[in-house]
């Protein structure tokens, strides 16, 4: 079981949390301006990253707040957790920043 550090409550067991998928995906500001493919990209296409990955979690059974986790998807190591809206922490020891998912024409990161 993972131990996840909730930014509000501290270190807690994984069962208290629920997963929310990839983080930092903004809803397009003008959905009507998008064609079907772009809208499909926004809805369904995710990076499926191997390695350091920014994702959303919610402390369902604790404080019920959403926050972001920087987790390595191959080793499960959690590099950092941070509040929604807080600056993104860097990947420790990484020479280059987290690889961007495939470019979305509409959504700004």
């Amino acid at each position: 079981m993972l131990l996840i550090r909730c930014p509000y409550c501290g270190l807690r067991p994984e069962v208290e949390f629920s997963y929310g998928g990839e983080a930092h995906i903004s809803r397009p500001e003008d959905p009507n301006a998008l064609n079907d493919e772009e809208w499909g990209d926004f809805l369904f296409m995710r990076a499926n990253q191997k390695g350091a990955f920014r994702e959303r979690w919610v402390h369902t059974h604790g404080c019920r707040r959403w926050f972001n986790v920087l987790r390595d998807t191959s080793s499960h190591e959690i590099h950092a957790t941070y509040e929604v809206g807080a600056p993104k922490p860097d990947v420790p020891g990484a020479a280059k920043p987290v690889r961007k998912p495939r470019a979305r024409k509409s959504a700004k990161p």
């Binding site: 409550c9 069962v15 402390h59 604790g62 404080c63």
Partner: peptide
């Protein structure tokens, strides 16, 4: 005080 699970109940 903590919100948690006991015997799978919140």
């Amino acid at each position: 005080v903590v919100g948690t699970l006991l015997a799978k109940s919140q």
